[in-house]
Amino acid sequence: MVERIPKIIVPAEEKKPSFRFSWRIFYLILIIMAILFLIYGLFFSSFFKVKNIDLKGANLVDGDQLKKVITYALNEEDNIFLYRSADISAKIKENFPLVSEVNIQKGLPDTIRVIIIERQPVIVWQTADKKYLVDKEGYAYLEADANNAKDLPVIIDSANLPVVLSKKVASKNFLDFIKEIIEKFTPRSNLKIKELRIRDTTFDLDVLTTDGFIVLFDTTRSAETELDDLRRVMNHLNGAKPKEYIDLRVEGWAYYK
């Protein structure tokens, strides 16, 4: 008789999971935490909140009122990295027509420097019974008076059109034309200017002389050319003076009466 020997199966020993420390994961977590901390510090903490306004260039503009406007503009975003310079600049120009240019600089951690350039007048624009200072770009920005308009040439708008402050009343080309006429009119013609007038547009300029007649210019043409035409007309008249006008507006021709 054969005796059966039972087969004994010994179960394999289960391997217990082991924890292995990963320096790569550790450094990744540190980097993420550092980035989050940096973002919070730069954009959400009060450390980089604008607290000081350094204002430069305000001579005629009220500095205290200007700072209030800047502070109001910063209420929407006062973080030194996030505020919009264009918005602040627009608010300043909207409230202060006297300001021509605005430059804003960051000063870490909590200061902004606002540098303004105030407009400088080149002419006085008269319409009806009001007078306005106009800068070199043609913007009317302030009512003129005996103090701020001294020695400035006056352009009289015969159409008496209303003027809105901080809006253009004339082009830069027109103002350059006026400047050249004022500088060269008397040396070229031996005539003196009494008044400068425009009618419906700035394309035509009427120069009233102290002799009582008017010289008509086309401001879209060369002032140099028209002044040369005026000189030739005066030489042709040989000391005589027109009773009413000299019209130089048509190229190649000059009319007088």
Results as ranks from 00 to 15, higher is better:
residue 74 L to T: 03
residue 178 I to K: 03
residue 239 G to A: 09
residue 39 I to R: 05
residue 152 L to T: 06
residue 169 V to R: 03
residue 191 L to E: 04
residue 21 F to E: 06
residue 113 R to D: 03
residue 16 K to C: 12
residue 2 V to H: 10
residue 213 F to P: 02
residue 178 I to L: 11
residue 28 L to V: 04
residue 227 L to I: 11
residue 107 G to N: 14
residue 103 N to V: 09
residue 172 K to I: 15
residue 248 L to I: 02
residue 238 N to F: 08
residue 142 L to K: 09
residue 112 I to V: 02
residue 238 N to Y: 10
residue 112 I to M: 00
residue 250 V to M: 06
residue 253 W to Q: 12
residue 180 E to H: 08
residue 213 F to H: 09
residue 12 A to Q: 10
residue 73 A to L: 03
residue 43 F to N: 08
residue 143 E to C: 07
residue 31 I to G: 05
residue 220 T to D: 12
residue 121 P to L: 03
residue 152 L to W: 06
residue 147 N to V: 13
residue 240 A to G: 03
residue 50 V to Y: 01
residue 211 D to M: 12
residue 75 N to C: 12
residue 12 A to M: 11
residue 41 G to V: 10
residue 183 E to G: 11
residue 46 S to Y: 14
residue 114 V to Y: 00
residue 257 K to N: 11
residue 70 I to D: 00
residue 98 L to G: 05
residue 207 V to Q: 01
residue 169 V to Q: 08
residue 167 K to N: 15
residue 83 Y to H: 02
residue 59 N to V: 14
residue 85 S to L: 00
residue 86 A to C: 08
residue 91 K to P: 06
residue 116 I to C: 02
residue 87 D to Q: 09
residue 250 V to F: 08
residue 62 D to I: 02
residue 159 A to N: 14
residue 24 R to G: 14
residue 104 I to V: 02
residue 190 N to A: 14
residue 133 L to D: 04
residue 112 I to L: 00
residue 158 S to G: 09
residue 243 K to P: 07
residue 116 I to N: 00
residue 197 R to V: 03
residue 254 A to V: 04
residue 205 L to W: 02
residue 128 A to N: 12
residue 196 L to M: 08
residue 15 K to L: 15
residue 136 K to Q: 14
residue 134 V to T: 06
residue 129 D to F: 12
residue 11 P to Y: 09
residue 42 L to C: 09
residue 104 I to C: 00
residue 150 K to Y: 14
residue 45 S to N: 11
residue 64 D to L: 13
